[in-house]
Simulated scan of single mutants.
Amino acid sequence: MQIPTWRSAAEVRLAEALEEGLLSGEEIQSACAGGSLEAFGDVAPEAAAEICDVLGGLRCYIPTLPHEPGSLFDDLSAEARNLLLEVAGGDAVAIPRLYRLRLLVRDRVILALRQAGASTTELAQQFQCTDRAIYQVLEKHRGDGCRPMSEHR
């Protein structure tokens, strides 16, 4: 497994995790269920992940017409922009961060690196946390192989 460039769960890019197979489309859909992005997750998990990466934590007014250059939407792909306009155009939408999903990706990377032979000290340095935090992640997921989000309490 390639060592990630991010150091904390807050820096995890969901779209990249989906591409690399660390997350499934079903997990994105499950995380979006019941929230303001429910319709996005059902249509295109990749676009929902990208929207959360770029706009997560913001409450935005989504215009009904294509955006003007220099707006928040410049960092979105054309597919994500069009989906946002189609599903939420004309509404103010709170975009979730999906932080629990980001933690799950971080935990899966920690488990994979540990199985590949990394020490807990190396992992703690990589993820800027304590050895104890690494041990807690390992204990939390011992035997479950980092279950899908739908199975978490």
Rank of each mutant, 00 (worst) to 15 (best):
A78S: 12
A49R: 03
C60T: 14
L138F: 04
L72G: 04
T121C: 05
L123H: 03
I134R: 00
G41F: 05
L113S: 00
L58A: 12
A112K: 02
A10H: 12
A124P: 02
D144C: 13
A39C: 07
L113H: 03
R100G: 11
R100A: 10
R106N: 06
E79S: 14
A31H: 06
L23G: 10
E151D: 15
K140S: 13
E38H: 11
R108W: 08
G70E: 08
P148F: 03
S71G: 10
Q136I: 01
L76T: 03
L55F: 02
E26L: 10
S150F: 08
E20V: 10
H141W: 05
R114V: 08
L37T: 03
V43N: 02
R102I: 09
L22F: 07
P148N: 02
Y61D: 07
F73Y: 11
E79Q: 12
L83K: 06
D107Y: 13
A80T: 00
A39W: 06
T130R: 06
E86L: 14
V105H: 04
I110S: 00
G117P: 01
G34K: 06
G57R: 04
S36P: 14
D91T: 13
E151M: 13
L37Q: 02
L123K: 01
L104S: 14
P66K: 03
A33M: 10
H141K: 01
N82P: 10
Q115H: 11
D74I: 15
S119G: 04
R102V: 03
D91C: 11
P4F: 01
N82Y: 11
A48C: 09
P45K: 01
P148D: 13
P69R: 07
V12H: 11
L72Y: 07
V54F: 00
H152D: 15
A94K: 11
M149G: 09
L84W: 02
C52M: 08
S30D: 15
L111T: 04
S150T: 08
L65V: 13
R102P: 06
Q136E: 11
S119E: 05
R102E: 02
P66W: 06
E86C: 12
N82Q: 15
S71L: 01
R153K: 13
E38S: 06
L14W: 05
Q125R: 07
A47M: 02
P45Y: 04
T64P: 09
A88H: 11
L83S: 10
L101Q: 09
V105Q: 04
R13S: 15
